[in-house]
Amino acid sequence: MSTESIDGTSSTAVEVTPAAADKALALLESENMDTDVSGLRLFVQQGGCAGLSYGMRFDTEPEENDTVTEHHGLRVFVDPASLNYIGGSRLEYEDGLQAAGFTVENPNITAECGCGESFRT
C-alpha cells in the first residue's frame, strides 16, 4: 500500500494500520504534543541478538532528511539510514489479553531472534 508523503509524492516507506495510528495519536495527545507538527519516529538501531532492533519515539518535528508520511492523521518520520532496513514495513498495534503494543512487520528480514525483538536483513 502506498501512502501520501507530506510533500504529495507517493511513498512506500512504512504503512501504518488504523489501530496503530489511533493509539499513537492518543499517546501524542496525552503528552500535549501538537499532532499537526509532531509525529512518531520509527528507526533502526544496533542491538539485540540478531544485530538490529526497532526503536520508536515521539518527536516534535522531523529532521531535515527524514521521509515524512501521514497515515490516518499520524505523521511518521523515518531517517534515510533506517529507511534502508524498514522500507515497505507495516506498523501495527495489538491489544490482547497477554500483551499490548506496537509491532513491525518487515518484509526485508532474513532472520529474527527467538523473542522477535531483533532482526537481520
Rank of each mutant, 00 (worst) to 15 (best):
L25P: 11
L91V: 03
I109V: 15
M33H: 00
E112P: 07
A81V: 06
F119C: 12
T103V: 12
D95S: 09
T17G: 06
V104A: 09
R120T: 01
N108A: 11
F58Q: 07
G8I: 02
G101W: 08
N106L: 12
R120S: 07
I86W: 00
C113Q: 08
G114T: 02
A21M: 05
M33N: 01
E29L: 13
G51E: 05
E61N: 15
A19M: 08
T103N: 12
D34C: 13
A20R: 04
M56A: 15
G96E: 09
E61K: 15
V16D: 07
E112M: 12
G114M: 01
G96Q: 10
S82N: 05
E4K: 13
S10D: 05
G48Y: 02
T9H: 11
V37P: 08
Y85G: 07
G101P: 08
I109Q: 13
A20G: 03
V14G: 04
T60E: 15
H72I: 09
T9L: 09
Q46E: 05
F119D: 04
L74E: 08
R57Q: 14
F43E: 05
A13T: 01
T69Y: 11
T35L: 03
A99Y: 10
E70V: 12
Y85V: 03
L25I: 14
F43H: 12
S89N: 08
L42N: 12
V37F: 15
V78N: 01
A19S: 14
P62E: 08
E112R: 07
E29Y: 12
S82W: 03
L25C: 14
V104K: 07
E92T: 14
